[in-house]
Design a protein around this nucleic acid. Structure first.
Lengths: 133, 133
DNA sequence: CTTTACCCTCCAGCTGGTGGAGGGTTTATA
DNA sequence: TATAAACCCTCCACCAGCTGGAGGGTAAAG
């Protein structure tokens, strides 16, 4: 299967697939004309990559997932550990963004948003922190 | 005020301040020995940068904020528009991460997490999407 | 037989910095 | 007064995770 088909099959951009091969996440045979040729197992790896990236796994975590996937003696505990790590960092990001949202909402509510130059947002951003507490 | 003091004053790393000068977000005079010398208005700009970055504004948005801050004829509406844009993208990020959290939690709950190799997480990541719907 | 749509490699750039090499300066201490 | 620690400087390279483009070869369609 050439790279265009692999792209259509997995939803990954052609450029991204080449990049993944570059950094050793997948491998591809070469046809006589130099075109990449992906077999079924490699397509499966690409699919796993596409899904895992959507799920917020970093490329290094994806590398670990692929290694586990390829290892028939794996323990599902190891996979779950990776996923739980990822879940923790997702939750941290959510918490940070929610704190941000609250502060931003607060600042915005205090700004008149009219033709006048005075602005509570600029004032709030100019103070040396401490506004948040 | 030299860069070390500016750093202590604003909480920004020295390297970051140099970077901000590099890309034209602040400017600094030079002392006879070549050291940067920040005056009060530039320190104020750095402080605004530090706060705005914490609030999730991109450096280009910070540039716009600084331009508004420096313009006595500004309309507070323009500042608020920027902040609202930012708020929208923060909310989008939160929504995406929450969807992610739900999917991850679901996958994790289905994985035994034991010594056996079969794993619902790997299975879930191997299907060509559609699991989420 | 040409056009279009592929494919290839390699290099550069994006955001927002950070780390280090290799140097000069200033301040504190022995 | 020597010297060491703590500053400061510039410049170059690197991180993630791609993406765009230049400059070229190849394959399928009309």
């Amino acid at each position: 299967m050439n790279i265009g088909h692999a792209s259509a099959e997995t939803g990954l951009p052609v450029k991204t697939i080449r990049y993944y091969e570059d950094i050793g996440l997948v491998s591809a045979d070469r046809a006589a004309n130099g075109y990449r040729d992906f077999d079924a197992p490699q397509i499966a790896r690409l699919r796993l990559l596409a899904q895992a990236r959507l799920m917020g796994f970093s490329l290094e975590e994806c590398r670990a997932l692929l290694a586990l996937e390829a290892d028939p003696t794996r323990h599902s505990r190891d996979v779950r550990d990776l996923a739980e790590q990822n879940l923790i960092s997702v939750r941290e990001k959510i918490a940070n963004l929610q704190a941000l949202e609250a502060r931003l909402t607060d600042l915005i509510s205090k700004c008149h948003g009219d033709e006048a130059p005075d602005c509570a947002i600029l004032d709030g951003l100019s103070t040396s922190a401490s506004t948040a507490r």
